[in-house]
């Protein structure tokens, strides 16, 4: 199974527009949206959801008001400033836990002398299996303020691999999240290849270097493409050279083209809308296919 994940470090560089186009060009893939925090791929691929599951992860401490004796032990033990105190006549009268700050460590639950703290499992989002014109799609929505530990991303990816196996689809194309922490690490784990999308800006270069360090750390073959290269041809050139010297391959560059936004407004992949950028994206996809053929696909399972 060939698994390609599109990442960027910096947000807003065009990951989703590219992923949608790749899905359209390939047509025999399972499509995955791992940006569970701001899932935009469905806006272009118009999925029809066939299955929805709740995503549970971790626990949340909740104080039962009637049993709380206001001793303050929970507040002393909490290292995450999640316990709030209401005062009456200058004395603590009631403690509550702010669910958005609670880290779910359970220390207050253990030490509460009156056993007044419940510790229910937390519903942190939902994930969906849908059908699109380009193949099955797995996507998710993390609840607001939930911990994006990477478990939802892993769940979504495991499901995608199962579907790929069942339906004998040779490719998995993954739209990754921005950044370099948990969700990104979970997105690239087990991928056969990562495509890094960079804009030719100083910020883009800075973030790209950190993403390289990450793909290197996890030993994942890396390709780079430059989006909106005419914005700064000099930096675009530096990116290409930088990619090669960091051991990555260069997949190509995409022009600054208003049809990218126009396609987004119309809700279709850029390659179906047409324009100069669509041509550039086609060429990049050919390079990806070529590069993928030279990669030995390792067997990697969730552990």
């Amino acid at each position: 199974m060939k698994e390609m994940v599109v990442i960027s470090g910096k947000g807003g560089t065009g990951k989703t527009s590219l992923t949608a186009s790749f899905a359209s060009l390939n047509g025999k893939s399972v499509i995955v949206d791992c940006d569970v925090d701001a899932s935009d791929l469905p806006l272009v691929l118009s999925p029809v959801t066939e299955r929805m599951e709740y995503f549970k992860s971790g626990h949340e401490a909740v104080i039962r008001k009637d049993d709380c004796v206001a001793c303050g032990t929970c507040m002393d033990k909490c290292r995450f400033d999640a316990v709030h105190e209401a005062r009456r006549y200058g004395r603590p009268s009631q403690f509550t836990i702010d669910p958005l700050s609670c880290e779910g460590c359970g220390v207050c639950v253990h030490f509460c002398p009156s056993g007044a703290i419940d510790f229910p499992e937390q519903v942190c989002g939902q994930w969906m299996v849908s059908e699109t014109r380009y193949g099955p799609m797995v996507h998710a929505r993390l609840a607001i303020g939930a911990e994006n530990s990477g478990k939802l991303v892993s769940t979504v990816k495991t499901e995608a691999r199962q579907i790929a196996e069942e339906r004998k689809l040779p490719w998995i194309i993954v739209d990754g999240p921005p950044g370099i922490a948990c969700p990104v690490i979970a997105s690239i784990t087990g991928a056969s290849m990562a495509l890094v999308v960079v804009e030719p800006t100083l910020s883009g270069v800075h973030d790209m270097e950190r993403v390289f360090a990450l793909t290197k750390h996890f030993n994942i073959p890396t390709l780079v493409c430059v989006n909106k290269w005419e914005l700064n041809p000099r930096i675009a050139g530096e990116i290409e050279r930088g990619a090669l010297s960091a051991g990555a391959s260069f997949a190509g560059k995409i022009g600054y083209d208003s049809s990218v936004t126009a396609a987004q407004i119309k809700g279709i992949p850029v390659v179906e809308y047409g324009g100069p950028a669509a041509q550039d994206i086609r060429r990049i996809w050919q390079n990806i296919e070529k590069r993928m053929e030279s990669i030995e696909i390792p067997t990697v399972m969730e552990v």
Binding site: G11, S101, G145, E147, N148, Q264
Partner: peptide, 30 residues
């Protein structure tokens, strides 16, 4: 960026929040 725990950690206890969006369907959704 986003709406998960790092964002919560960053915005809590602020007096005012400026949300920066862009004029596009993705921008609107997010």
């Amino acid at each position: 960026p986003g709406t998960s725990c790092p964002v919560i950690a960053a915005v809590t206890k602020s007096d005012y929040v400026v949300l920066v969006s862009e004029s596009s369907p993705f921008g609107l959704h997010d």
